[in-house]
Amino acid sequence: MPRIKPLPDELDPSVRQLVARLRELKAHAELTTRQLASGSGYSARSWERYLGGTSLPPRAAVQALARITGADPVRLLAMHEIAAGSWDTRRAESAVQPRPGEHEPEERPQSEDEKEGQRERERGQGQPPEASVPDPGPTATPTSRTATPATEPPPRRLPHIALTAGVLALTVAFIAALLLVLRLDENVAPAAVATSAGTAATTPPHSYLCRITRTDGRWSAGINNGRDTEISYGDTGADVAEAQCLLRRAGISPGGIDGMFGPLTLRAVKTFQDRAGLVVDGMLGPRSWKALRG
């Protein structure tokens, strides 16, 4: 079994709790991503992103995993609702954060009067002037100029602030439209997954009805016309539904009659084989079918 990668450190706690719970259900049911894809309608690559914490699973995918593993969907959907809110909020906040130094005002060059006022202020604070020339005359009295520092006009920031506000408004509008498109895309029903060679065609869940009858000493559920086709874990179709009905008739619950040979059906088959004294391999072959119909 491949090593499970750790979740990213920057993942939100609510999203981390949801993904950890989905991982536990998958590991407990001993499912692969390919088997999840076959039973849920979402690709194996999508399940790798969902279980890796790089993409939030849609609501329909969470419902499908709960159905496949026999978990309570109400608790999982409540965890998904909280995680979806924090996931959308974090993506919006990271998208509208301003770049460093974006609001810093531009430096304005000083005029000659302002430079002279700066030098006068430095002299008043005891700092040495930039240059001084001594007077050679013995009776010369040193003179000093007292100039009033020029008042520095306030920087003109209004055009820059207005431009920045306009850019931020356009960015927020774009992010909101993008989030809306992503939410609508996630709610679209997933495309049907093509079945692999040798596997029966997948049918919608809850579409089989058990009609238990006994003809010539053989039990039948009226679904697969009495076939004894060999089936095993991961198979789907009418043969699996027939076996599920006969297992329920024998007093062993395989979960729902959905035509999917999942973890619950595998457990029921092994229990029946052990009870009937057969080889407990989890596969329904000719001997197991004979015992089910006998």
Rank of each mutant, 00 (worst) to 15 (best):
P134F: 02
A78V: 03
L170T: 14
G259Y: 02
T271F: 01
L178Y: 15
L247W: 01
A44K: 04
G101P: 04
A173M: 15
Q110T: 12
R59D: 09
M283H: 06
A84N: 13
L278K: 08
A71D: 11
S86V: 05
A140I: 10
R183S: 12
E120T: 08
A192Q: 13
H28I: 08
D135S: 04
P129G: 12
E116H: 11
W289C: 00
L22F: 06
A243N: 03
D228R: 10
L163R: 15
R183P: 01
A250D: 05
Q17K: 12
E81C: 03
A177V: 15
D88S: 03
P73M: 09
E48A: 06
E102F: 07
R90F: 01
D72A: 02
M283C: 07
A169D: 15
V19R: 08
A162G: 11
R59W: 04
A177N: 15
R123W: 08
A238K: 13
H206A: 13
G237H: 07
P98R: 07
H80E: 06
V15R: 11
I252Y: 03
A150H: 05
R293F: 00
G222R: 08
T141E: 06
R91H: 06
S132I: 14
P142N: 12
T139W: 08
M79W: 05
E186P: 02
L11E: 02
Y208M: 05
F272V: 00
H80M: 03
Q127M: 07
H160E: 13
G294T: 07
A250L: 06
A194G: 00
T171H: 02
V279N: 14
A84E: 13
E114S: 14
V172I: 14
A241S: 03
L209T: 12
P73L: 05
E102I: 11
A238Q: 13
T236S: 14
R275P: 04
E81R: 03
T32W: 04
G234F: 05
L182P: 07
A37M: 00
D72H: 10
A95D: 08
V240E: 11
P105A: 09
A61N: 05
A250H: 01
E152A: 09
A200L: 10
M260V: 10
G39Q: 07
V167F: 12
L182K: 15
N225T: 07
P58A: 00
R267W: 02
D185V: 15
G259H: 00
I231F: 01
A176R: 14
S46H: 12
C210K: 07
T271Y: 01
T33I: 05
C210F: 13
L264Y: 03
I161C: 04
E230T: 15
P159G: 14
A197T: 09
R16M: 11
